[in-house]
Amino acid sequence: MSEIPFVLLAFFVLGSYVQTITGFAFGLVVMSAAALFSLVSLEVAAFSVSVLSLLNCVTGLAGGLWRQVNRKILFAFFLSSIPATVFGVYLLGSLDDDALHWLQLMLGLTIILACGMSLLKPKKNESHSPSWAFFLCGGFAGILGGLFATAGPPISYLMYRQPVSLNVIRASLLGIFVFSCLSRIGITTLAGQVTMEMIWLSALGLPCVFITTLLAKRYPPNVSPEVIKRVAMVLLLLSGVSLALKAIF
């Protein structure tokens, strides 16, 4: 890697800050920026997002929160998520440059869908969703995770509908994200798709994510997380629309 992508590092910082305050959006911020401004290839960006999200999620589970992970949900989710992730990684690696506009269109539509789901406030179910719902969700999330390292929106929407405490929801989501990131990193490595550019960019991003997370926790903004979430989602929605239009035209 001949040049340090300072612009992308800035988006690492922005994504880390938004995720620390609101609990999500790191992958969406980085992937949308990488694709919209052609900063790095989608393969490189997705690998870096997986590595850096893993750091963020492991940090979030520290202090005993991991004990509240719902293991039954985790198992049902990963029965379908892992093979779907394999398919997504294969699809991303097998598409050539002529299919780049299709990838950009798919990413743009994914961002639009994710923003729409995030702006909605899911209503709590009276009872727990059946295991097959998490199985189906795992398949959809796995394909998104394999392609763009953005497996979060489908499972987040489903989890927030469950009649359980916010701590259980947060712990279970972080646990799912940890295993999703580990799965994608492992699959990419076994497929021989990891490059020095991916490793270099991930190494540069680690201090960006770590320092930003610490500062955001220590010095939270005077604005409510809900306001930051909505502003971030509107900006991401615009970036998703721009990316889809760029792919079409």
Score class of each variant (00 low, 15 high):
Leu92Trp: 07
Leu109Val: 10
Thr110Ala: 04
Leu107Ser: 09
Leu79Lys: 07
Leu107His: 03
Asn70Val: 14
Val86His: 01
Gly64Pro: 00
Arg71Ser: 02
Ala99Val: 10
Leu100Lys: 03
Leu107Met: 10
Leu100Arg: 15
Leu109Ile: 02
Met106Cys: 12
Ala84Cys: 05
Val69Glu: 02
Ala99Glu: 14
Tyr90Val: 06
Asp98Ala: 15
Gly108Tyr: 08
Gln104Phe: 04
Ala114Arg: 07
Met106Lys: 12
Phe87Ile: 13
Val69Phe: 04
Met106Tyr: 06
Tyr90Thr: 04
Ser80Lys: 03
Leu103Arg: 09
Ala84Pro: 00
Met106Asn: 08
Tyr90Met: 14
Phe75Ala: 13
Gly93Lys: 14
Gly63Ser: 04
Lys72Pro: 08
Phe77Asp: 01
Trp102Ala: 12
Val69Asp: 01
Trp66Ala: 14
Leu107Gln: 09
Ala99Ser: 13
Leu91Thr: 15
Arg67Ser: 05
Thr85Ala: 03
Leu107Thr: 03
Asn70Ser: 08
Gln104His: 08
Val86Asp: 01
Ile82Val: 04
His101Asp: 15
Pro83Cys: 02
Leu113Ala: 13
Val86Leu: 01
Leu107Ala: 07
Leu109Gln: 07
Gly63Lys: 14
Ala76Arg: 04
Val89Tyr: 07
Thr85Asp: 02
Asp96Ala: 03
Gly93Tyr: 04
Ala76Gln: 04
Leu74Asp: 05
Ala99Phe: 15
Ile73Ala: 08
Ser80Trp: 03
Ala114Ser: 07
Ala99Asn: 03
Tyr90Phe: 11
Leu74Cys: 03
Ile111Trp: 04
Trp102Gln: 02
Val69Trp: 12
Asp96His: 05
Leu100Asn: 12
Lys72Trp: 14
Asp97Glu: 11
Gln104Thr: 07
Asp97Val: 07
Phe87Trp: 11
Gly108Cys: 10
Trp66Tyr: 15
Ile112Ala: 00
Val86Gln: 05
Ser94Pro: 06
Ile111Met: 05
Ala99Cys: 12
Lys72Cys: 08
Leu92Gly: 03
Ile82Gln: 11
Asn70Gly: 10
Asp96Cys: 08
Phe87Gly: 06
Phe87His: 06
Gly64Gln: 14
Leu92Glu: 07
Asp98Trp: 05
Ser94Glu: 15
Val69Ala: 15
Gly63Phe: 10
Met106Gln: 09
Lys72Val: 13
Ala84Lys: 00
Arg71Cys: 14
Met106Leu: 15
Leu103Thr: 05
Thr85Val: 02
Trp102Lys: 06
Asn70Trp: 09
Leu109Glu: 08
Asp98Ser: 02
Ser94Asp: 12
Lys72Met: 11
Met106Ser: 12
Ser94Trp: 11
Leu103Cys: 08
Leu95His: 08
Val69Thr: 07
Tyr90Gln: 13
Asn70Leu: 12
Gly88Asn: 00
